[in-house]
């Protein structure tokens, strides 16, 4: 019985971690900066590939994961400078441009590195509760998801950079007039978003099959979580991921994965219909009134 109870908690934690980690980078790039980033999955793929490559070159897994995160962040900063910069007021154009980047990245990876890439075994073994055995590493993923939420909160709410970043996103001209180096803030924010996507890839690399199009497997969950969360990353992502994780893990457990996925998408349609500005908009309005 305790096994079954723990199983529900574990399944919730597992789906929650997947939603938070998939969405964190996109929450900054799309939620805060307004870039509809269709290449989000490819930042994740970049994190996966660099992690696996450096791991197979002999780095310990944690360092390899740090390399994957940093590499995605660097690619993000360069990309922001080269193609994203003119697109801040043009969300639909950003969709087209990042879709192009995504196609180039997947096909380029296929051409240069081939259709497959060597995987990494899942570390840390397993533990038993009741009749069930669980992978320990997936608890690490849950802890990492909490850590990412904490990091994003502290970075944007408790640091000077965070104040400048929020000011830039709300009113770039005013921020610039007050002496905020807005282009650097944009580049850094985009880089942090890309690095968080890379971190997601780095963390999931040991649990997945590695192919150039693997980023596509994250992108639906990422967009869904960000849209349900609403404009404010700091307020929205955590409750959105929690609610969606309860719905999905519950339906998965009782009716299987097909219903779980359908249920997740229906829930999103209902939530967006009832709360057009997402959870964060609703929370902000509640605290204002």
């Amino acid at each position: 019985m305790s096994g079954d109870l723990f199983s529900y908690v574990y399944q919730f934690a597992d789906v929650f971690a997947f939603l938070v980690l998939s969405a964190a980078g996109l929450a900054i790039i799309f939620g805060m900066m307004g870039i509809i980033n269709m290449a989000h999955g490819e930042f994740i793929m970049c994190g996966v590939y660099v992690t696996s490559a450096t791991y197979h070159m002999g780095l310990p897994l944690v360092l390899a994961q740090a390399c994957g995160t940093a590499a995605a962040g660097l690619v993000g900063v360069v990309l922001e400078y080269l193609v994203i910069r003119p697109l801040y007021a043009r969300p639909l154009d950003s969709l087209l441009v990042t879709l192009g980047v995504s196609l180039i990245a997947t096909q380029g990876t296929l051409v240069i590195l081939g259709s497959t890439f060597p995987g990494i075994g899942t570390p840390l073994g397993s533990f038993d509760v009741g009749v069930y055995t669980f992978s320990t590493y997936r608890m690490v993923l849950f802890a990492a998801a909490i850590g990412v939420l904490g990091f994003v909160y502290v970075l944007f709410m408790r640091t000077g950079f965070g104040v400048q970043a929020r000011a830039t996103m709300q009113n770039a001209a005013m921020a610039r007039a007050l002496g905020v180096p807005t282009s650097r803030i944009y580049a850094l924010s985009f880089g942090i978003g890309a690095a968080l996507a890379g971190l997601c890839g780095a963390l999931y690399a040991p649990t997945m099959n590695l192919i150039p199009t693997m980023g596509a497997g994250f992108i639906v969950e990422a967009f869904v979580t960000v849209v349900v969360g609403g404009a404010s990353v700091l307020l929205g992502t955590a409750p959105a991921a929690a609610v969606l994780a309860i719905i999905r893990s519950g339906l998965n457990a009782w009716y299987g994965q097909v219903i779980g996925q359908i249920g997740l998408l229906i829930a999103v349609i209902l939530i967006v219909r009832v709360l057009p500005s997402g959870f964060s908009g609703w929370l902000a309005r509640r605290s204002a009134s």
């Binding site: 574990y10 399944q11 597992d14 009749v131 069930y132 997936r138 994965q257 097909v258």
Partner: peptide, 20 residues
């Protein structure tokens, strides 16, 4: 018997259903 939508990559629940 479990049918999985194409593109699904997370199997923690399926693994538990099997153990059960």
């Amino acid at each position: 018997e479990e049918f999985i939508p194409l593109g699904v990559s997370q199997f923690a629940q399926t693994i538990q259903n099997i153990q059960k």
